[in-house]
Amino acid sequence: MLHPQAQALMKLMEERGVPPTHTLSPADARAFYRERRTFTQPAPPEVGAVRDLEARGPAGPIPLRSYRPAGSSPDAVLPVLVYYHGGGWVIGDLDTHDVLCRQLCNLSGCAVVAVDYRLGPENRFPAAVDDAVAAARWVSAQAAALKVDASRLAVGGDSAGGNLAAVVALAAREAGDLAVAFQLLIYPATDQRRGWPSHTTNGQGYVLTKDSMDYYHDHYIADKAQDLDWRASPLLHPDLSKLPPAFVLTAGYDPLRDEGLQYAHALTVAGTRATLVNFERQIHGFITMGRVIDEANVAVQLCAAQLKQALA
């Protein structure tokens, strides 16, 4: 059963004529996402410090935003989460996920560094991947200056950001030049082929639709053959062993539900520790909607607790 609060939100969106993402230009979709976030997101909690930074990237500077938890000493060396926002590799930015990053920071006691990677269609695959990897490497290299512990570095993200976090963990293992201690994967996209049953059962009527997923895919992936590249579809990597432990969170009414389930299971089968929790009554994107969906706040607390325990 769909959660009554999620039902109420969807009804309100219908009554107010909220346009589906796939009917908007990328520029308009980005502006709309940024503007509407205040209707569903909680008030931003105070943190110990916030700084906007830049990492050196393969195509120029990558904007970052660093957070330190409330009550922490400026000189304390903290574990760190490198966070990649959701938005289908097309929309989303540092502001759309500012509240979530603040929540995770305070509740976990970890520093958080959010990454504003390049978006499609202006910068197609693998631009976002290249930026995501470069940003994580930069945080690790700058650990002393950032007062974070490079040996306790996690990667995380929601939706498209969960995809990027999983890919960064794989890329780090492949290259052997970046230690990743934990993966926080919130309803991650793991298979660009989009053929799992939940894409059909949840493909209409639950905010994220098949039309919008096709829109995001086609603005990100230029060549269908790239769907099979593990940097686009981490589930298709032939070897998912010897990766950092993962916490995978999914939603029952999300088209991406089965991709998260399959990725968690594939990790476990390969010998990588993975925990899966499914919020059966929830929709895609719910974790940022704590103003109107109570279970979102529980999901944030759960993610933060997993992060805190993994990096203790």
Rank of each mutant, 00 (worst) to 15 (best):
G203V: 08
S212E: 12
E174A: 07
Y215I: 05
V180R: 08
E174K: 07
V180F: 05
L178S: 03
A150L: 01
L185N: 07
A169F: 09
E174G: 03
G195V: 11
D177F: 02
G205Y: 10
A141Y: 00
T201C: 14
D158T: 06
V168R: 06
D177R: 06
L146A: 14
M213W: 11
S151E: 02
L184A: 08
A171D: 02
A136M: 09
G203F: 13
G157L: 02
L184F: 13
V133P: 13
A166Q: 08
V207S: 05
A154R: 08
A132I: 08
A143G: 06
Y206L: 06
A154S: 08
K210L: 13
A134W: 12
L170K: 14
V180H: 05
H217L: 03
H199P: 04
R194F: 14
T190W: 10
A135K: 03
M213D: 13
D149S: 08
P188W: 06
L185C: 07
N202D: 11
E174C: 06
S212Q: 11
W138P: 10
E174D: 06
Q192R: 03
Y187C: 04
A181E: 00
Y206W: 09
F182H: 14
P197C: 15
D214K: 10
A135Q: 08
W196F: 15
T190P: 10
W196G: 11
A143E: 10
A169S: 13
R137C: 02
Q204F: 09
A150T: 08
L146F: 04
V155E: 01
H219K: 00
A160E: 00
A132V: 10
S151N: 10
A171K: 01
G157R: 02
A171Q: 01
P197H: 14
T201Y: 11
V180M: 04
K210I: 07
Y215K: 08
D149T: 11
D149W: 11
G157P: 01
W196L: 13
A160D: 01
T201P: 13
N202A: 10
N202H: 14
T201W: 12
L170R: 08
Q183F: 04
V207H: 02
A132T: 04
Y215F: 10
S212R: 15
D191M: 06
Y187Q: 07
R194M: 13
V139A: 05
A181I: 03
G203I: 15
A136W: 07
L164Q: 09
A165R: 15
Y206R: 04
G156T: 03
V155N: 00
P197W: 11
W138L: 06
R194P: 02
A154F: 12
Y216W: 12
S159H: 04
A181P: 01
H219Y: 00
V168H: 12
A181Q: 07
R152T: 03
R194W: 15
G156W: 08
V139S: 00
T201V: 15
D177L: 14
R137M: 05
D177T: 07
G195A: 14
V139L: 00
G195F: 12
G205Q: 14
T190C: 07
L184I: 04
A160C: 11
Y206I: 06
A172H: 04
S140T: 03
H219I: 00
H219D: 01
L184C: 10
N202Y: 09
A144P: 09
D149K: 05
L153P: 00
A154D: 08
